[in-house]
Deep mutational scan, measured.
Amino acid sequence: LQLFIKTLTGKTSTVEMEPSDTIENLKAKIQDKEGIPPDQQRLIFAGKQLEDGRTLSDYNIQKESTLHLVL
C-alpha cells in the first residue's frame, strides 16, 4: 500500500509498504529515502505516536494514509 509521509517542512514523500510491515520497517524505508536515522523519527497517525514493534495493520493504516514525521 502507498503511504504519504509528511514532514514539518510540508514536504511529502511516498513509500510503498505492506499492511504486515512494522513501524520499524517503515522508519528504515524513510531512512533510505530521506537519510533520517530511525531513532530520530517519530511518526504520528490519527494523533497517536506509532511504536516500532507494531504493524501498520495494528494501527489500521490504510492505503494512501498520510503519516506525520516529527524529528
Rank of each mutant, 00 (worst) to 15 (best):
1 L>F: 13
1 L>W: 08
2 Q>C: 08
2 Q>D: 05
2 Q>V: 15
3 L>D: 02
3 L>N: 02
4 F>H: 11
4 F>Q: 08
4 F>P: 02
5 I>H: 00
5 I>E: 02
5 I>K: 00
5 I>R: 00
6 K>R: 10
7 T>F: 15
7 T>M: 15
9 T>F: 13
10 G>F: 03
10 G>K: 04
10 G>H: 04
11 K>G: 10
12 T>C: 11
12 T>Y: 10
12 T>G: 06
13 S>F: 15
13 S>G: 05
13 S>Y: 15
14 T>Y: 11
15 V>I: 14
17 M>E: 00
17 M>I: 11
17 M>Y: 11
17 M>H: 04
18 E>Y: 14
19 P>D: 08
19 P>F: 09
19 P>A: 10
20 S>A: 08
21 D>F: 04
22 T>C: 02
22 T>L: 10
23 I>M: 02
25 N>A: 14
25 N>I: 13
26 L>H: 00
26 L>Y: 00
27 K>Q: 02
27 K>Y: 03
27 K>D: 00
28 A>Q: 13
28 A>N: 10
29 K>Y: 07
29 K>S: 05
29 K>I: 10
29 K>P: 00
30 I>R: 00
30 I>L: 08
31 Q>H: 14
31 Q>W: 15
32 D>W: 11
32 D>F: 11
34 E>D: 08
34 E>R: 07
35 G>Q: 05
35 G>P: 02
35 G>L: 04
35 G>C: 04
35 G>A: 05
35 G>M: 05
36 I>A: 04
36 I>Y: 13
37 P>L: 06
37 P>E: 06
37 P>H: 11
37 P>Q: 06
37 P>V: 05
38 P>Y: 12
38 P>R: 14
38 P>T: 14
38 P>C: 07
39 D>G: 12
39 D>H: 13
40 Q>A: 09
41 Q>F: 15
41 Q>R: 01
41 Q>A: 05
42 R>T: 14
42 R>F: 12
42 R>Y: 11
43 L>I: 13
45 F>Y: 13
45 F>H: 06
45 F>R: 02
46 A>C: 08
46 A>G: 12
47 G>V: 01
48 K>F: 09
49 Q>D: 13
49 Q>N: 10
50 L>S: 01
52 D>Y: 05
53 G>E: 10
53 G>C: 06
54 R>G: 06
54 R>F: 13
54 R>S: 06
55 T>Q: 08
56 L>W: 02
56 L>F: 06
56 L>P: 02
57 S>N: 10
57 S>I: 09
57 S>P: 02
58 D>L: 02
59 Y>I: 03
59 Y>W: 02
59 Y>Q: 03
60 N>T: 04
60 N>I: 05
61 I>Q: 02
61 I>R: 01
62 Q>W: 08
62 Q>Y: 09
63 K>G: 14
63 K>E: 11
63 K>T: 15
63 K>F: 10
64 E>H: 14
64 E>I: 05
64 E>F: 15
65 S>H: 06
65 S>N: 07
65 S>D: 14
65 S>E: 07
65 S>Y: 06
65 S>T: 09
66 T>Q: 06
66 T>L: 09
66 T>C: 05
67 L>C: 00
68 H>N: 08
68 H>M: 14
69 L>F: 03
69 L>G: 01
70 V>L: 14
70 V>M: 12
70 V>F: 14
71 L>E: 08
71 L>K: 07
